[in-house]
Design a protein around this nucleic acid. Structure first.
Lengths: 221, 221
DNA sequence: ATCGTTACTGATCAAGTGCTAAACAAAGTC
DNA sequence: GACTTTGTTTAGCACTTGATCAGTAACGAT
């Protein structure tokens, strides 16, 4: 009955391809961070208020869309200033580290970033290895070099940073990261406020680590 | 053509229900740890050399099977001795902690356990909160109590363990756990052997933590 | 106004999903 | 050897998935 009821037939908006593409990637980050990479392209399209085939106009396959999500999360959210900051020897190392972690956690300790990180890690491929190596080279190694300088030890170019130093710092970096996991993945927010936790971690690190490195590199003089 | 070729028609084996059920759960742990919980029941059945509907004779739904996997991984692999070991005050705390982590990592630092842990964490439900709280109550709180005893501080029954103490130890526990993630999820095996890493972590912990607690609980005398 | 380009939709396919019901066959009992 | 029990298979339903393609309509140029 009631054939007179007319469906609104809402006209669709035509966006410049660049805009639409960006819009899709951003929605995909949010969507996949919720449902994982097995989330359906139809669900994503619904959320965008768009039909599903449209996604395939911008990305030849779902895998390609996922690649774009990786780029958005891992690359475009990485801040070059971080490495600069770590190297600023006019500031005490303690301050640099605290400032760095406050900035870094403001990007990384966020459900979207965290969940995409975990999902992509479990998916395998090469993203895993790439990211861990990247962090090791751009953050951990950097910090170890600063500790060397602080303790008057030979620079990395003279005596390469050892595996023990890297892994020694991983203990703290991983410990800080796990705070973010508890908060954003396991939804059991730690009761210690993040800034205080960071300070605590850094102080704990600076208290023992430099001495340990010093005695492990006895050939320095 | 060649209609004479007879399919071998291999006879199937009839197992006692308890055996078959156990077999299915164990295969499910392995299977889901590889593909995640969205792995298909048909794939699991193939791997078992069995047809897919058989799984539904033993588990009313896939969700129920997943619940059984949780139990297998989280409950049946937990060792009661761990808590006992941590409380053995006839041994130095350092030795207890090292022994505990060597035993604990032998169970947890394994692709199956680790990946199920991550997958279940991302799935949500209540497993997350339950596990984190469980670890906090059975391991971390325990360690904090031992540190109290070691430092001659008031026991937990007199002065409850504080959030700062728990989170302070999370830094180290999380840092150790992250070693397992690098190894088993991200497939970038750390170059420091695990036993050495554990020792390093414990020493680093014992060096600063007890003093920090002492000065944070000034009302003790 | 009209026209051409192309961003977008509607319809659809083939493959795969969890799950069910009925038929089959292996093992124990008499 | 016939009979019962029940572990296992075969067949299949309803639905969702990634992906395709022809057709529609929004927008800019003229």
């Amino acid at each position: 009955m009631s054939a007179a009821v007319e469906t609104p037939k809402k006209a669709f908006r035509r966006l410049p391809p660049a805009d639409r593409k960006k819009q899709i990637v951003e929605a995909a980050v949010a969507y996949f961070s919720e449902f994982g990479f097995e989330g359906a392209t139809r669900g994503l399209a619904d959320r965008l208020g768009v039909t599903q085939p449209l996604i395939y106009r911008y990305f030849p396959s779902k895998d390609e869309l996922i690649r774009a999500v990786y780029e958005e999360v891992y690359l475009s959210r990485w801040r070059g200033e971080w490495m600069q900051l770590l190297g600023r020897r006019d500031l005490p190392l303690r301050e640099r580290l605290i400032a760095f972690y406050e900035s870094w956690t403001s990007v990384v300790f966020e459900p979207q970033w965290m969940r995409i990180y975990m999902f992509s890690g479990l998916r395998g491929l090469d993203i895993n290895r790439w990211w861990i190596t990247f962090v090791e080279d751009h953050l951990l190694r950097r910090v170890c070099e600063e500790v060397r300088a602080l303790s008057g030890l030979p620079s990395a170019s003279e005596t390469p940073i050892t595996a023990a130093e890297i892994d020694g710092y991983w203990l703290f970096h991983g410990g800080i990261f796990y705070y973010g996991m508890r908060e954003n993945i396991y939804a059991v927010p730690p009761r210690t406020p993040l800034p205080r936790f960071i300070e605590m971690a850094i102080d704990s690190f600076l208290q023992g680590f430099p001495e340990a490195v010093k005695s492990a590199l006895p050939q320095a003089d």
